[in-house]
Nucleic acid binder design. Structure first.
Length: 566
RNA sequence: GGGCUCGUGGCUUAGCCAGGAUAUAGCGCCGGGCUUCUAACCCGGAUGUCGGGGGUUCGAAUCCCUCCGGGCCCGCCA
């Protein structure tokens, strides 16, 4: 509803400008504490009109026609500013729309197909706390895009043939694999050992090189061994992702593109652009006209392909299967993804949109699976669950053990997901246990609690015989500030989903979720529902149901559980 | 050395792309509120050279230049 309001304001203001023979490229509309929408366009017109901004604002305000049956209540001037305010129709339609559309409120359709790649961690160990930033941003983006009307396919690109996997495969034959442990953790153990040995005895590296050569040549025995290694790691990784409510629609295996000759086709196509040169036996692409000083190697001097080469083949495949390609990648991929886009562009293909997130490091330095320096996601999830249980015990001592465990589970996962997604991706962070396990801050539990409170009111009402579906609502009786503020917040959902989907910024939704919860809690504190006189009570119950619905949509879109009770 | 990126109260953080009215919120700190729908809540207060310096502009946290500090990257790893 907010978007409709905004477009009506745009129209009204544009006509007023025309009426005065004025033209402007940008209306300077902004949300503001002073108005529902404010415009500072008068400043920009001052030089042209040779009048003061305040005079221009008054002049425009005088010629603004507030349309009948619209959403604008009035326009006021405050010095040079033009302040637009919403009317009761806006509030009424917002509530009616939410009520009528239920969980589909703010859902759009028909915007095309998206292939969204995220996580794609190398299968050489468990996910660590750096990887989950990728997973959580990616999963949340997927949910936002779906809500915004895209058909979304999330993909995990499995690196099943690089040097790292050769080392894991080699390690499986030289060290004891601990079958008691979760498989991805056991893989990390031997991977770390192998790296240590390879570091101490460099001559063993020849064995790894041989494996890489054989996998590239399509040796079925080596392929089988690699697959076994990858499966062990992936089994554990998928389980961990599942714990966080994250699931991929499909898994793309890197080796596929070598075996089906997409890689060699890709190399030929790149050669055809005339950009390739051979240097020391290696095939390189010149991208200097795209601003990349150094050439990009796409074939080693022994003729084998590199990660980049296979990634190019993968992206060429994706380009032919969707309308939007989106990759969520760590900051270390900034350069390489730029080069990848340049090559695709040179081939005349669509380029992916890249969402880059900065690193999560430990207080003692950056994380590394190879060196065994990382905190695993499983460990974090276990710790958060334990801590969450303590919190539930403290707050709901009289409930059953099952209830406590269930609450601890969704509160813990919610806290992690929300903590990660609320921060804009370009901020590098340092992992801190105390911070991660802190339940005092206003995060996911705050939003989930608001939802539970709304559910509780509705349940009590239904318990005393009220039929929610039959209630009549009269917007004119909702006159408290908290009621109006709440409705205005609810009205913004569509706009928030839309900008988050366009800009690929999931943290906007996180901020919005907090604001809605905040707004509902204030309403809850100051506006009695069940004890109000009947017609007032009914209208408020409808509003509570709308708030519950929006909170549940928002929680769902953030991948968080929306509890009826906690 | 070069490139990219971040720097906002004690800590964490929004706003920056598309410059405007008292700079967003949380934690922590001080004080207040449970005989009313779940207090994982609500209300009030203190705390800010928006990293430093220049510039553009009627107006800069936001744009430009420069310096400082953190992170990431810089051809046959992924």
């Amino acid at each position: 509803m907010f978007l409709q309001f905004k477009s009506q304001v745009t129209q009204a203001l544009t006509s007023a400008l025309e009426a005065n023979g004025l033209e402007v490229t940008y209306l300077s509309l902004e949300e503001s504490v002073h108005a529902d929408i404010a415009s500072s366009v008068a400043f920009r017109l001052a030089p042209v009109c040779k009048k003061s901004p305040a005079d221009i604002a008054s002049m425009l305000a005088a010629s603004i026609n507030v349309p009948e049956n619209g959403l604008i209540d009035r326009v006021e001037t405050k010095g040079p500013y033009l302040n637009f305010y919403i009317n009761q129709t806006f509030l009424d339609r917002t509530v009616s729309a939410i009520r009528a559309q239920g969980h589909d409120y703010a859902s759009q359709t028909g915007r095309g197909k998206v292939i969204l790649e995220h996580t794609s961690a190398n299968p050489n160990g468990p996910l660590h706390v750096g990887h989950i930033r990728n997973s959580i941003i990616g999963d949340t983006l997927g949910r936002i895009l779906e809500k915004a009307g895209y058909e979304v396919e999330t993909q995990y690109y499995i690196n099943d043939m690089g040097r790292q996997i050769a080392i894991v495969s080699w390690a499986l034959e030289h060290f004891d694999f601990d079958t008691e442990k979760k498989s991805d953790h056991a893989i990390a153990d031997i991977y770390i050992q192998a790296n240590r040995v390879l570091n101490d005895e460099p001559d063993k590296k020849a064995e790894i090189d041989e494996l890489i050569q054989r996998i590239e040549d399509g040796d079925p025995d080596v392929a089988e061994r690699f697959k076994h290694a990858v499966d062990l790691a992936m089994e554990g990784i998928k389980y961990t992702l599942g714990r966080m409510n994250i699931h991929h629609d499909s898994f793309a295996w890197e080796s596929t593109y070598v075996r089906n000759s997409d890689v060699s086709t890709t190399v030929s196509r790149i050669k055809d652009t005339g950009r390739t040169v051979v240097d020391d036996g290696a095939l390189m692409v010149d991208l200097s006209d795209y601003g990349f000083e150094k050439k990009l190697v796409i074939l080693r001097s022994d003729g084998t392909s590199l990660y980049t080469t296979r990634d190019l083949a993968y992206h060429l495949w994706k380009a032919g299967h969707c309308d939007r390609m989106i990759d969520v990648l760590g900051a270390d991929h900034k350069l390489i993804s730029g080069q990848l886009k340049a090559v695709l562009n040179a081939l005349g293909e669509n380029e992916p949109e890249i969402v880059i997130f900065e690193f999560v490091s430990l207080p003692e330095g950056s994380m590394s699976t190879r060196r065994g320096k990382f905190i695993s996601t499983d460990e974090l999830l276990d710790q958060i669950n334990t801590q969450a249980l303590v919190e539930v015990e403290k707050r709901r001592p009289d409930t059953s053990d099952d209830f406590k465990q269930e609450v601890a589970n969704f509160v813990g996962i919610g806290a992690i997901r929300y903590d990660v997604v609320k921060v804009s991706p370009e901020k590098s962070t340092v992992f801190d246990w105390r911070e991660a396990l802190d339940f005092e801050k206003q995060g996911a539990p705050f939003i989930q609690y608001s939802h539970a409170r709304a559910c509780s009111i509705l349940a009590n009402a239904e318990g005393s015989g009220v039929k929610l579906a039959d209630l009549e609502h009269h917007i004119s009786v909702l006159v408290e500030d908290q009621e109006i503020e709440l409705i205005k917040h609810l009205a913004r959902l569509t706009a928030v989903i839309d900008t988050a989907a366009v800009d690929l910024k999931p943290h906007h939704l996180a901020t919005y979720a907090r604001e809605v919860a905040d707004s509902f809690n204030q309403f809850y504190r100051y506006v009695p529902v069940l004890n109000a006189e009947v017609s007032l009570r009914d209208s408020r119950l409808v509003l509570v149901d709308c708030a519950r619905n929006v909170l549940s949509i928002v929680l769902d879109t953030l991948g968080l559980h929306a509890p009826k009770s906690m």
